[in-house]
Computed example of a mutant assay.
Amino acid sequence: MTSHTLQGLGEDEILWFQRRSVVSASAGWLAMGGMGGASAQGRSNVVDSAGDIALNGQRWMPGQSIQTGDDIATGPASRLVFVIGNAAFHVRQNSRLQVGRGSSLNAVSLLRLLTGAVVSVFGRGSARTIVTPTLTAGIRGTGVYTEVLPDQRSYFCNCYGTVELACAGERMTSVSQYHQAFWADPNANARQALKPAGAINHTDEELEFLAHLIDQRTAWELAGRKGVKDGKGTMNAAPGQLHPAFMPRR
Rank of each mutant, 00 (worst) to 15 (best):
T2K: 14
S3C: 03
L9D: 02
L9F: 08
G10M: 11
I14W: 01
I14K: 06
Q18C: 07
Q18E: 15
Q18H: 13
R19I: 09
V22P: 04
V23P: 06
S24P: 08
A25S: 10
W29N: 02
W29G: 09
G34I: 03
G34C: 08
M35K: 02
S39W: 12
S39C: 04
A40F: 01
Q41N: 15
Q41G: 05
G42C: 04
R43S: 09
R43W: 14
V47Y: 09
G51R: 08
I53A: 12
I53S: 08
A54Y: 08
L55C: 06
G57H: 03
G57Q: 06
G57N: 03
Q58F: 00
M61L: 14
S65K: 10
D71R: 11
D71K: 13
L80T: 07
V83I: 12
I84K: 04
I84L: 13
A87W: 01
A87M: 00
A88R: 02
A88Q: 05
V91K: 05
R92F: 09
N94F: 00
V99A: 04
V99W: 11
G102H: 05
L105K: 13
N106R: 14
V108G: 02
L113M: 04
L114A: 04
A117I: 03
S120K: 02
F122A: 09
G123C: 06
R124A: 10
G125I: 03
I130N: 06
L135G: 00
T136E: 12
T136Q: 14
G138A: 10
R140K: 15
G141F: 00
G141C: 11
T142E: 01
G143I: 01
V144Q: 02
Y145V: 09
Y145S: 09
T146M: 06
V148W: 08
L149C: 07
P150C: 10
D151H: 07
Q152V: 09
R153M: 05
S154M: 02
F156K: 05
Y160D: 15
G169Y: 03
E170K: 03
M172N: 00
S174I: 06
S174P: 01
S176Y: 04
Q177E: 15
W183T: 12
A184W: 11
N189D: 15
N189K: 14
Q192E: 14
A197F: 03
G198R: 14
A199S: 13
N201G: 07
N201H: 01
T203C: 02
D204N: 14
E206N: 13
L207A: 13
E208Q: 15
L210D: 01
A211Y: 08
I214H: 04
R217T: 11
T218M: 11
A223Y: 09
R225G: 12
G233S: 03
T234P: 00
N236G: 00
P239I: 02
L242M: 13
F246I: 09
F246T: 05
